[in-house]
């Protein structure tokens, strides 16, 4: 599997990371080197192996569905680059 410049542009768009046109080609080379090296994983027989999804042998805990905390509107928006009336402000989304 090999990544070309267009795929890198597509992935960068999915990740919402602006990559300059001139950087796409070198980035493709770097990513291909890494992915090429990762290819060796195909040597491992993983038929009948379940993917590891939890590290510690444990059951997820249950808890009551109740409000135990909150009421921090001003703290929540305290670090916002742009804030209005206790809300996060973003560029206009709906035309």
């Amino acid at each position: 599997m090999s990544l070309d410049k267009n795929t890198v542009a597509k992935v960068a768009n999915l990740a919402r990371i602006r990559v300059e046109e001139k950087d796409l080609e070198p980035m493709a080379l770097e990513l291909n080197a890494i992915l090429g090296w990762v290819e060796q994983l195909s040597e491992v027989n993983t038929d009948d192996v379940a993917p590891m999804t939890s590290v510690a042998d444990m059951q997820m805990r249950w808890r009551q569905d109740e409000i135990t905390d909150g009421g921090y509107q001003s703290e929540i928006v305290a670090n916002a680059p742009s804030e209005e009336e206790g809300f996060f402000a973003v560029p206009k989304v709906i035309e």
Partner: peptide, 24 residues
């Protein structure tokens, strides 16, 4: 970018799922 690619449609099984099986 590597992570986004490994999780993207069509590549998830080949990369992420495979890596999680090798991890097991």
């Amino acid at each position: 970018l590597i992570g986004t690619y490994a999780l993207s449609a069509g590549y998830y099984d080949a990369y992420y799922l495979k890596a999680q099986k090798v991890r097991a």
